[in-house]
Write a protein that binds this DNA or RNA. Sequence first.
DNA 1: CCTATATTTCGATAATACTAGAAATGTGGA
DNA 2: TCCACATTTCTAGTATTATCGAAATATAGG
Lengths: 113, 113
Amino acid sequence: MESKTAVAGLAALAQDARLAIFRLLVQKGPEGLCVGDIAAKFGMAAATLSFHLKELTSAGLLVARQEGRFIYYAPDFEEMNALVSYLTENCCGGGTCAPAYRPVARKRKEKVT
Amino acid sequence: MESKTAVAGLAALAQDARLAIFRLLVQKGPEGLCVGDIAAKFGMAAATLSFHLKELTSAGLLVARQEGRFIYYAPDFEEMNALVSYLTENCCGGGTCAPAYRPVARKRKEKVT
DNA sequence: CCTATATTTCGATAATACTAGAAATGTGGA
DNA sequence: TCCACATTTCTAGTATTATCGAAATATAGG
C-alpha cells in the first residue's frame, strides 16, 4: 500500500461518526447494512450519512451493493487489512510494535541525581 | 483504548506531512531526531513543523525530550501499538481481517540466534 | 405512467485544519 | 549580562471538512 492510500484510509476513519459507522459494519460482517438501518442507528440526517459513506467508500474501506431499493454497505476487509499491515510495517518499527510485541526497553524516566 | 483516543491518533496520522514525519521517527527509533534535523529532511517552515509535532504529541504518538538546546522527538511505540490493536480488534472483524495476526503473545522471550 | 420509498446530489453555512511570517520563549556559552 | 541558536506561540490567510434542508435520482410495485 502506498502512503497516499494509507492517508486516505486513516482520514476516513479519523472522525467520530465514520469510525462508529465502520465499527458497526464490521460487527455486521460481509452482509453489511442498508443506509436506512445505519441512519436509524445513529439518527443523523440522510445527507450527512451519505457524505460519510461516500468518504469511507472512496477511501476503499467500504463496498456498496444494491439489493432492490436498498443499498447495502459492508467493510472491505482486505483493504482494512492492508491498512493495518501498512501501519505495523511502517509505523511500528518493523513489527516490533504490534501484536507480537517484544518487551524491549520500555521508556524510562531520567533519573535526576 | 477508547474510540476518542483512537480518532485522535488516526487524525494525527491522516496527513501526508505528519505520516512522513512519524515514519521517519519510527525508522530512527527511540532516540528520535531533533526538530532542526526533521525540518532539514522535509524543508518545511519551522512553524509548520512545530504545528505537526504538536498534533502528533498531543495525540500521544510522539514523546519529546530536551537535550541541551535541542528537543528530540521519538515515537511512543506503546501508544502506537495500542492504536493498531484497537484497529485489529474493532475494525477487522476480530481476526477475519488480519490473516497474519497472531493472537496476543504476551511477554514472549526473544530468541537470540 | 404514477406513487411511495430509498438514497444521493446540490447549495449554503459553520467549523476545523494547514501554512507560514513575525514575534516570543528557552537554552547554552562567552 | 548579552548574544546566537533552537523551537514554539501568535496571528492571519486560505483550504478543507462537516452538517443538513431541499431538490433530484433511482427502484419497485400497482
